[in-house]
Design a protein around this nucleic acid. Structure first.
Length: 109
DNA sequence: CTCTTGACTGAGG
DNA sequence: GCCTCAGCCAAGA
């Protein structure tokens, strides 16, 4: 089993899975940790297959703390609900006090 | 092989 | 501070 692209996806899942409770990170941060700071879109694209892989995709947002990927979830506010349940304050699809809940894989790992 | 799309980001107006 | 443009890389048609 080779396929480096698959490895990239797997890496994204693995990092996302390591996001601690009540914390969030950005696509760029994950991409940067994977050595692809310009592939933030790929990270998000990879998250498309996160369903069924036990990946807390709701903890992954864009750099502004905006829940850009909420449209991919079942409901309309499901992503926000999940994050709020973890103690993350969200207003209008945007994470409040982002710096306090921000989790940097490069620092944590 | 070429074109389009996309859960992004940074720079410029 | 908000809107637009361009760069980025991978997957699907």
């Amino acid at each position: 089993m080779k396929t480096e692209t698959l490895n990239f996806f797997e890496k994204v899942y693995e990092v996302a899975r390591q996001i601690p409770y009540g914390k969030v990170t950005s696509y760029g941060a994950i991409g940067n940790y994977l050595g692809a700071p310009r592939s933030a879109r790929m990270v998000g694209y990879a998250m498309n297959g996160s369903v069924g892989k036990d990946v807390p995709a709701h903890r992954v947002v864009n750099k502004k703390g905006l829940l850009t990927g909420k449209h991919h979830f079942d409901g309309t506010n499901l992503m926000q609900q999940l994050l709020e349940s973890e103690g993350v304050e969200i207003i209008d699809n945007q994470i409040q006090n982002l710096e306090s809940v921000y989790w940097d894989p490069s620092k944590a790992l």
